[in-house]
Design a protein around this nucleic acid. Sequence first.
DNA 1: GCATAACCGAGACGGTACGTCGCGTCTTTGG
DNA 2: CCAAAGACGCGACGTACCGTCTCGGTTATGC
Lengths: 198, 198, 198, 198
Amino acid sequence: MPPDAARRSDRSRLAILAAARDLVVEVGYPRVSIEAIARRAGVGKQTIYRWWPSKGAVVFDAVRALSEDEAGVITLPDTGDLEADLKTVLRATAVEFTDPTLSALLRALYAEIAVDPELATLYQEKVERPLTEAKLDRLRSAQRAGQFDPDADLALCLDFLYAPFTQRWLSRTGPLDDAYADALVEATLRAFAPTARG
Amino acid sequence: MPPDAARRSDRSRLAILAAARDLVVEVGYPRVSIEAIARRAGVGKQTIYRWWPSKGAVVFDAVRALSEDEAGVITLPDTGDLEADLKTVLRATAVEFTDPTLSALLRALYAEIAVDPELATLYQEKVERPLTEAKLDRLRSAQRAGQFDPDADLALCLDFLYAPFTQRWLSRTGPLDDAYADALVEATLRAFAPTARG
Amino acid sequence: MPPDAARRSDRSRLAILAAARDLVVEVGYPRVSIEAIARRAGVGKQTIYRWWPSKGAVVFDAVRALSEDEAGVITLPDTGDLEADLKTVLRATAVEFTDPTLSALLRALYAEIAVDPELATLYQEKVERPLTEAKLDRLRSAQRAGQFDPDADLALCLDFLYAPFTQRWLSRTGPLDDAYADALVEATLRAFAPTARG
Amino acid sequence: MPPDAARRSDRSRLAILAAARDLVVEVGYPRVSIEAIARRAGVGKQTIYRWWPSKGAVVFDAVRALSEDEAGVITLPDTGDLEADLKTVLRATAVEFTDPTLSALLRALYAEIAVDPELATLYQEKVERPLTEAKLDRLRSAQRAGQFDPDADLALCLDFLYAPFTQRWLSRTGPLDDAYADALVEATLRAFAPTARG
DNA sequence: GCATAACCGAGACGGTACGTCGCGTCTTTGG
DNA sequence: CCAAAGACGCGACGTACCGTCTCGGTTATGC
């Protein structure tokens, strides 16, 4: 007998997500326990176990709840100037990653994903894919506008734009500032410029 | 009174690292406990606590022990053909990441690093930096040989080469094959070709 | 608003008592839970809580339901031969106590009674008293027939007849066979024989 | 690996028994939890589970600890006057049963014994048997002194003396006073008087 | 005959306790 | 004097039940 979602208490759901979010920020993901989340949320442990399979899943939903307002389709800016648009987006992402709350939550999530294939799949489908689609759309638009090599491997191109960014953030290798964002965009565009091949 | 390293039992040290390695592979990092490592290694718990501050540190050393034979200075191949050399190196890295043992250990380590700044620093200094230096040497050699933009930001260039690679592996986004290694190298070189900037 | 007994579902009532009875026998009283009774009876938990204050009360009623057919006034055999009649009754009781179902239920009840004064009172009034009255009647009849010391403390006499019996059964000190029943009766009658006192 | 009794902490053992004793008296056996005992004793739960299999076993030891000073062989008074001696003993027992602490503990124990055969056996061997032996000794001495039927079933005789007593106490059927004690002894002796049988 | 009030099943909820596992510390014993 | 062994106080795990509470959905009168 699976839990009956219709009877689910929204009050508890929100309290749990908020408690999880706050605790990750306050004491760090590994020291967050389900007991502590329940205690903080004023909720029975079973209410957590009823609706989430693991601590990671709760944090996952807590992260999603943070960006819930963006609900629906995500679109990247398209002013016609690809380079400017990409810089805008990457700089904004840098700001997000600098926010301590979001940053702590996302670190927790990435750590768990690295080690839990199921959560990885979930993240892939619910978060990554829609974002990737939006980014691909912008690149395709650039291709149509002749600002981009029509034969380029767009997935690879996205890896170039985002992976170094994410890695720097995750491993704290260097600062995530506007200069780095700009350099990333410029180098990527050099690699995939319309004239780059033949 | 700090432990006297001279009296340290090498037999126990190796047994502990081997047990840690095997357990991470068998049950997954989060389910490895210090108690289990001690049990498997036939060692008292205190012997672990005496020499390592945390589970992460033990696994960290276990990873280092795996590549211990490479001891000393690391050098990348330098046949004179930068593109060929980089492809060789990246393809080899892909093979390493495909090995289940090493892969499981490294995933564990990355997960812990994402969340534990101290371990991140340790990893940075003991593992990352020597590797990065070796890679930079190879790029500088290429610059001297005129195969590379002399003004290029070499750190950024390394990010381009390795970050997408690592990210694909960590998040299981796609296959790590020769084709991907080659594409990475080619695109990176396009971005940093000697002629790339006026 | 107290529950309206008129509307009570007899179907549920009987299912609950049967489930309680079976569960006590199967898993032992301490491991019986109200949830399990409800589950087994195909009944909502509230239906139990509405009509019984505690697990002990349900089992109490389950025991009473077992001997419900004896409804009304209980009478002991009175053939004129007190010794024979008492032996008949005690031997029959021994058989009842040997029945695994009844025995398990009664043990549960006694255990609860030892520790719950309220249930003790209830048991006293609903079960013990009528039985005691019937037994006293038989002894009085014997007194009238001159088979028994007219000044005897009949309550004490009943204690002699039944307490050793119950104790043996409860504490599993020895077998409950015909020989023991007979010996009990004989010794008791020796103590309270008409000629016993002056 | 069974726990190593040599390393057992006496401090913890005594604290646990004291906590168990106090809690049974304060809140009643069924509402005593192992968690509460551990909390009150300032002890980890595991320390209880390591040395006792169940709540009942802890209370059992707590009861034994109460009468630990009697250590060794128990002897009943033997002034030569059997009736007087038995009355002395039974009256003393009545006083013990009236003590609220001991009474609550013993009730708990009896309740658990009624329902847990293993605990019943344990109680039988560690507590009941030595007591029974002492009582039998006294009766045998009386037989030798000609104050008692030489062919009497002494076990049955003990049942007569103690079972009604215990039952009254357990089921709160009536007061446990000197009069009842005396009446029990007198009736029992009537049943087993030397002249009772041919 | 039709409202309406109750019981009924189901089961979510805030809790407490279960019995187990692991933490990091401490102590005892033996090589 | 280090190492094995492992007891200890502690706290979290994930599960089972507690007793309360709301849900619809049947009944079963009483207007």
